[in-house]
């Protein structure tokens, strides 16, 4: 079982990308690191050099430093949003799957309702009520993650609830909550882990999108999305200002996607290679 998991090339590539990303984010936050938000207008739009490996932007900030610090914002938002989404969505889905009744109906229809709103609309709503900021982005993307986790868990758990050993557990007087925690959740865990990696990738993308339109991380905190936005007008003059954060976003999403795909093959025995 584990053998086929670690033989998957995608898993390794994904894991290496994500690990590097995490290290870069942590490294950029170390106290001794130069502050990438320092503005030195005199050094604006410098080409790559020994001093500035990737050059500087229109305000003379170091592009490499900005991109590295941007990783921490992206990961923070993605991880925060997934924690929120899974933390609420998983219990809801589990609860709804136990019995077919008004409660399960209410939970799943409320999920449909949230699903109907794109994260962007939720972000605008939050922006107007609580203002922009990193919490705003986490909340907007996190709310959007709730129905995703609720549905995935609901579908998986529903098929587990019908199994004979669940009936046996009911017959010996186990309460539903205990059955859910002891039998159903552990068996659904693989599916949940896969969904977490997928949602982390989407979370990075969503954060970039929100920051791009000015609904995410506020200046001066560096963010890949806002870097793209600011590079827009300079695309002819200094294309690297757009290419570098763009590549960073693409790589991060690719890393999580590869990881998620490899894990889902491992979780789903039908996709697993026999022998």
């Amino acid at each position: 079982m584990s053998q086929s998991l670690f033989q998957t090339r995608g898993l390794w590539i994904g894991a290496i990308i994500i690990f590097t990303l995490l290290m870069i984010a942590l490294f950029s936050l170390l106290p001794g690191m130069p502050d990438p938000t320092l503005i030195r207008v005199a050094e604006k739009l410098r080409s790559p050099s020994i001093e500035h490996w990737l050059g500087t932007d229109q305000l003379g900030r170091d592009l490499l430093g900005l991109t590295m610090r941007g990783a921490s914002a992206s990961l923070l938002v993605a991880i925060g949003a997934v924690t929120l989404g899974a933390g609420i969505g998983v219990p809801l889905g589990l609860m709804a799957s136990a019995h077919e009744n008004w409660l399960s109906q209410a939970i799943m229809r409320a999920n449909d309702f949230i699903f109907a709103f794109p994260a962007l609309v939720i972000a605008i709503l939050l922006h107007d009520t609580v203002g922009a900021g990193i919490q705003n982005a986490i909340l907007a993307i996190g709310i959007f993650n709730i129905p995703v986790f609720a549905r995935v868990v609901f579908n998986k758990a529903q098929s587990i609830w019908t199994l004979d050993f669940i009936q046996a557990a009911r017959l010996i007087g186990r309460r539903d909550i205990n059955i859910a925690l002891l039998h159903v959740l552990p068996l659904a865990l693989g599916t949940i882990i896969v969904q977490i990696t997928i949602q982390l990738g989407l979370g990075i993308l969503a954060e970039a999108g929100l920051s791009y339109v000015g609904l995410g991380v506020t200046p001066p905190t560096p963010s890949w999305g806002r870097m793209l936005n600011e590079a827009q007008t300079l695309i002819g003059l200094a294309p690297r200002l757009a290419i570098v954060p763009g590549l960073a976003i693409a790589l991060a999403v690719l890393g999580f996607t590869l990881l998620g795909d490899a894990l889902s093959e491992w979780v789903d025995p039908r996709k697993r290679n026999g022998g």
């Binding site: 199994l163 004979d164 050993f165 009936q167 046996a168 017959l171 010996i172 039998h183 552990p186 068996l187």
Partner: peptide, 15 residues
């Protein structure tokens, strides 16, 4: 009242 099911594998939690 206790019960024994048809499929012995399905009636035991695989984990």
């Amino acid at each position: 009242i206790q019960m024994v099911f048809q499929d012995p594998m399905g009636s035991l939690n695989p984990r």
